[in-house]
Write a protein that binds this DNA or RNA. Sequence first.
DNA 1: CAAAATTAAATTGTATACAATTAATTTATA
DNA 2: TATAAATTAATTGTATACAATTTAATTTTG
Lengths: 141, 141
Amino acid sequence: MNYDSLKLENQVCFPLYVCAKEVINKYRPLLDRFDLTYTQYITMMVLWETSPIISKELCRKLYLDSGTLTPLLKKLECKGYITRCRDNDDERNLVVCITEKGMALRDEIISVPESVRSCIPVPDEDLQQLYVILYKILEKL
Amino acid sequence: MNYDSLKLENQVCFPLYVCAKEVINKYRPLLDRFDLTYTQYITMMVLWETSPIISKELCRKLYLDSGTLTPLLKKLECKGYITRCRDNDDERNLVVCITEKGMALRDEIISVPESVRSCIPVPDEDLQQLYVILYKILEKL
DNA sequence: CAAAATTAAATTGTATACAATTAATTTATA
DNA sequence: TATAAATTAATTGTATACAATTTAATTTTG
């Protein structure tokens, strides 16, 4: 039998998985200073754009479920970056609001994207192409 | 201040992270039948190609550390797919060998790559491009 | 309107991931 | 050659991820 399809080098998912991991690892030392993990960081990104926001919406935008977000949001609350409270109109919903401290974090963290970019020494065109293909796939999934 | 660089839509890492997660999620129902996780599956892929292999080499090929691999290998051993023993020449090294049962698994699992491929309805050219860019980045990291 | 169905967050359990440390072994060196 | 340095797995601790279940609230429906 021909087992070529089961070779690691013939997989697209493997470099995708490794690349995502390794790029996220580049964020770690940069985000450590702010006591944030990568997942907490992208959560803050949504909140800098949209606050207040319902937890369900946050889950949808971040492609995460409540099992992941519930403890993460509690941690961000402990750090003082967000508040969590129930929606009066529908008590099932959790309303997440960014705090002043959370909003202020944006100014401090502004240099992170550029720092990460400098860790990935490939041309802009490659990253642009990568971006387009990834969203093309995400749309179809 | 201009905060565009902190918008989720302007990140390359975010779709990379989500895409990797979502594609791996496509493997889940397919691998469940074999009682394997994605990480266990790619570990088996290395072993189908190379056995015996030193744990250190396995770590290097999979971009994982011993904190992740040690418990994973113990699980694969419990399932009867591999054996773990020390290298007589250098007792620090852990030698991982595939078992007959592990080798037989390859024939059963052969259809998985095609099944996953069919879950990602984009042209081959896109995946080919993706593959090239991802390895280009990995080489530089 | 009351019961059933639906929805959303939280909880529980399992499996990664990785940093930091520890323990055992081997290699280098004074 | 005895000790220091280096190497490798394993361990410990923290933080995701996600499936499955539970709980509480809301909506639908008979």
